[in-house]
Write a protein that binds this DNA or RNA. Structure first.
Lengths: 352, 352
DNA sequence: TTGAAAGCGCTAACAC
DNA sequence: GTGTTAGCGCTTTCAA
């Protein structure tokens, strides 16, 4: 069996309390004592039993991260960022997949598994604003995404409206006037689709370009196939356009394929813009212009805020955090920079 | 505070042992008693304390999954599959990222975090065959990948040689004779690169096509940029070829970009083949022919075997499992089927 | 079939 | 500064 506090205490000739103090970096320990304890720990290769610690302290040292699914690149990259942030803060991340299903999301909030974590970073997809009350849970919870606003918890999110507006303005600056949108959701006001569409309209308005409903391509989901289908419908409708704004990168990449199949040149005939700055946008042909919505900052903030809540003594009013965004101009929107495939900065190994 | 066994026992008018028996589905409980206990549990909304259970039983109900990084699609899709399998088996997955770094991989094997898990599914990238002894750990361990063979643990992997051979044979059947490879590793015999290259050579040999070293493109890593660079080098070298076999999909997609930039038509001028069947291979233009190495089966087998080991009483000799593979012919290798963007089967929501 | 009691390894009061 | 002690909530002998 593994060594316990008692074993260490015995070897070091002290009580278990002293050993515990050493392990938890308590002050006021005589250096000589500490030294002896440390030696005993090394000798026995002692590691504290985490279950016992949790049972006693009520803390697990883990935080949960609930997201729709890892096979969607956006969430894989988000999870990667959260795990790295958590590591810097000395905590472990437990990932949960919801499939974007409202019932599973709600169930997860009160799942027995919540016992395993001290708090939760929650990125819902199925829940809506009306479900905000489900977020009144008995543990620290940080909300991500644009499904619920003014909820009872801290909320970390991106500047959807401003970022979409900046993306659209970029296309306008490039001389485009007939900018189609791919990925709108019928009647949605809140949610990523609604907010980004609002940014688009704001940009048009500011530029004095009339809004044309015929340019809006609706989809139910934001998978690549939906971007392709919506674009095909736009082409079939005969409406004229000189740019496409995909409400996320995946949609834009789907659109890219269809546009090229139709013999249209990007960006000469149609400029193309995405949203998310997924890794793969740097490798499409042409490379995809997009918006970096501040994913790294969102992950870091979410972890930091969650840990603050976990360690807080008094309750505080919920706070809202907005990450900085950045329009990234690449080939698909007419950048004239030479076509290069980036090198060193993406050089991370894979060998499947 | 949350309800405990004692509370339930008191309400039900039984001892905590009886409640425990009910919870753990022990046999020999009088139906009436069971009924009363169940009612008490429901009334108090009782959930067993997992830390206490772990402390006492030595089991955590979690298994670890160590992989290089989630932002690499292959591993994100693998993680997704493992989580789903684990869920079916009633256990929770704790993901750890190693960055593919040998030292981190070795460190992880004896990390205190191993206490949190009953066993580990381990996909190393930095470790090699010489490090096999590090796998002699005191807990159930299932190895994935092609870095270490004949190690001291169960091993679940794919038929790299056979699958690569089948992929190459497919290109040969399509009339290609000058098949370039992208992603070879200098002097490597084991590892994905070495094994898949061997399959390639076997196929050539069987077809009576001489092996030409000039057709082999070496890369250090398997990122998209490496596939692009290696392909560019092939083109610059002036060597003639009528097909490219990317040793994984990511490499092949990098190659696709460079080939198209050079004005070559796929598949008319150059046929292209990948390996892994990543989701995105169905969305490139043209869609990418590839090999499904049986990822779902690998995940399911790994989880099942790990749980068998965890529940085993007596030790057993390590076993090796090979998943079935399947060559998937798409447009990039000359499929004549109409260009369609798949619909319903990929319809899983994303809204970032 | 059910109960009583011990104890998993640790932390945190409270002594000294 | 350091030691003693009492549980955290559960499972598991062992009895009844």
């Amino acid at each position: 069996m593994a060594a316990t506090l008692h074993d260490v205490a015995q070897i070091a000739g002290v009580s278990i309390k002293t050993v515990s103090n050493v392990i938890n970096d308590h002050p006021h320990i005589r250096p000589a004592t500490k030294q002896r304890v440390l030696e005993a720990i090394a000798e026995l290769d002692y590691h504290p039993n985490l279950s016992a610690r949790s049972l006693r302290s009520g803390r697990t040292g883990m935080i949960g991260l609930a997201l729709p699914e890892l096979s969607l690149s956006y969430f894989a990259e988000l999870a990667d960022a959260v795990i790295r942030s958590a590591e810097r803060h000395g905590v472990t991340v437990l990932i949960e997949q919801t499939g974007g299903d409202r019932d599973r999301e709600i169930g997860l909030l009160s799942s027995p598994r919540r016992q395993l974590t001290d708090g939760l970073i929650f990125s819902p997809l199925g829940m809506g604003n009306d479900d905000a009350d489900f977020l009144r849970v008995g543990y620290p919870l940080v909300l991500l995404g644009e499904r619920i606003f003014k909820g009872p918890t801290d909320h970390v999110t991106m500047r959807n409206v401003d970022a979409a507006r900046a993306a659209t303005e970029h296309l306008i600056r490039r001389g485009r006037r007939r900018i189609a949108v791919v990925g709108a959701h019928e009647g949605e006001v809140i949610g990523s689709a609604g907010l980004r569409l609002r940014g688009y309209r704001e940009a048009l308005e500011a530029a004095g370009i009339p809004f044309d409903p015929a340019l809006i391509g609706f989809t139910t989901l934001w998978h690549r196939s939906n971007g392709a289908t919506a674009t095909r419908e736009l082409l079939a409708s005969g409406v004229e356009f000189d740019a496409v704004f995909g409400l996320n990168d995946t949609l834009a990449l789907g659109a890219m394929r269809v546009l090229q199949q139709a013999g249209l040149r990007i960006p000469e005939d149609v400029a193309l813009m995405g949203f998310d700055d997924l890794d793969e946008t740097r490798y499409s042909l042409p490379t995809l212009s997009t918006v970096d919505p501040g994913r790294a900052e969102i992950a870091e903030t979410a972890v930091r805020v969650l840990l603050e809540r976990i360690n807080a003594t008094a309750p505080e009013a919920p706070r809202e955090f907005l990450a900085d965004f950045r329009v990234i101009e690449r080939e698909s929107s007419g950048s004239r920079e030479p076509v290069t495939v980036p090198g060193a900065s993406e050089e991370r190994g894979q060998e499947s």
